[in-house]
């Protein structure tokens, strides 16, 4: 579909806005509707659009397979790592109060980092699953 000029121009215009919206949903999630799950899917949908318009080979040049696999595992590790960090700092698993001097800031930091872990995993999984479906077509 790369030859269709309307599609490729519109896709190129939309990509940054979709990615920006995903980041907004990710990091503004404690104040407005949103969070890691939604942001992950929106982030992945930008790459789904890219694959549909420019093809899988061009997409692999931007986000290679190994990066996606790292993201799948890295998000879970980040989430669990925050929990273990709470243990190391002398509290319960997944207790964020000890992450900063003020418990309230600790909670805030914990929520942001955990949502980041969730978002990384969801985005990588959805993109990787879509890559897998597209690739098995060949």
């Amino acid at each position: 579909m790369r030859d269709n000029i309307v599609l490729s121009v519109v896709a190129r215009l939309l990509m940054p806005f979709i990615l920006l919206f995903a980041l907004y949903v990710q990091f503004h999630g404690e104040v407005s509707p949103g969070g890691g799950f939604q942001a992950g899917v929106i982030f992945a949908s930008a790459f789904v659009l890219f694959v549909l318009v420019y093809g899988i080979d061009a997409a692999e040049g931007i986000i290679p397979d190994g990066f996606l696999r790292g993201g799948i595992a890295g998000g879970v590790l980040l989430y669990a790592g925050i929990g273990v960090l709470g243990l190391l700092l002398g509290s319960n698993f997944l207790d964020y109060n000890v992450l900063a001097a003020d418990p309230k800031n600790g909670q805030h930091l914990g929520i942001v980092l955990i949502e980041l872990g969730v978002g990384t995993t969801v985005a990588s999984v959805v993109t990787a699953v879509f890559y897998a479906f597209v690739r098995s077509k060949r």
Binding site: G29, A80, G83, V118, T121
Partner: peptide
């Protein structure tokens, strides 16, 4: 007051029910 986030859904998701959400992320993984 406890989590400094006015969106209660996010607060419950990430803080009060953090174990639950960790399980969900592992399921997706």
């Amino acid at each position: 007051a406890a989590t400094a986030s006015p969106n209660v859904v996010t607060a419950v998701l990430a803080s009060y029910r953090g174990f639950d959400t960790l399980g969900e992320v592992v399921v997706i993984f």
